[in-house]
C-alpha cells in the first residue's frame, strides 16, 4: 500500500516540479516523498524508479502521439537507441536513487537484542 502511495505521490509532485523547474528537481521530489513515506530501501528504490520512469515515459508517449512521432524516430537513430527506453531509463535511475537516498535517511537503525 505504502509502495503504491509513494509511486502516486512521486508522480504528482514531480510532475508539478518539472512543469516549472529543470529536470533534476524531480530527484528532490522523489527524495522528499521517499523520506516522508518511509518505505524500506529496496521498495523505495523501485517505487522511485517506476514513478519517474512512468512519468517520463507517459509524457514522452503523450508528445509522441500528439506530434505523430515527428521527432521520435529521428532522435532514436541519432542516439542509436530507442528514445522511449532511454528516456525511461535515465529518468528512472535518477528517480530510483533519489528515492533510495530518502528511504535510507528515514530508516531507523534496527535494534539488535543480543
Amino acid at each position: 500500500m505504502k509502495f503504491l502511495v509513494q509511486i502516486i505521490l512521486t508522480v504528482i509532485v514531480c510532475f508539478a516540479l518539472q512543469y516549472f523547474f529543470p529536470w533534476w528537481t524531480m530527484a528532490i521530489g522523489a527524495f522528499v516523498i521517499a523520506y516522508f513515506i518511509g518505505n524500506s530501501s529496496f521498495p523505495s528504490f523501485i517505487a522511485g524508479l517506476l514513478a519517474i520512469a512512468g512519468l517520463w515515459l507517459g509524457m514522452a508517449f503523450y508528445i509522441d502521439q500528439l506530434t505523430t512521432s515527428i521527432l521520435t524516430e529521428k532522435v532514436s537513430k541519432l542516439l542509436s537507441l530507442n528514445a522511449f527506453i532511454l528516456t525511461a531509463t535515465v529518468g528512472g535511475l535518477v528517480g530510483g536513487f533519489a528515492a533510495l537516498t530518502g528511504a535510507l535517511l528515514k530508516a531507523k537503525p534496527k535494534r539488535r537484542y543480543y
Partner: peptide, 11 residues
C-alpha cells in the same frame, strides 16, 4: 531526454 524541457519539446 526530459520530456518536460528536452528534445521532446521540439516536436
Amino acid at each position: 531526454l526530459d520530456p518536460f524541457h528536452g528534445f521532446w519539446k521540439n516536436a
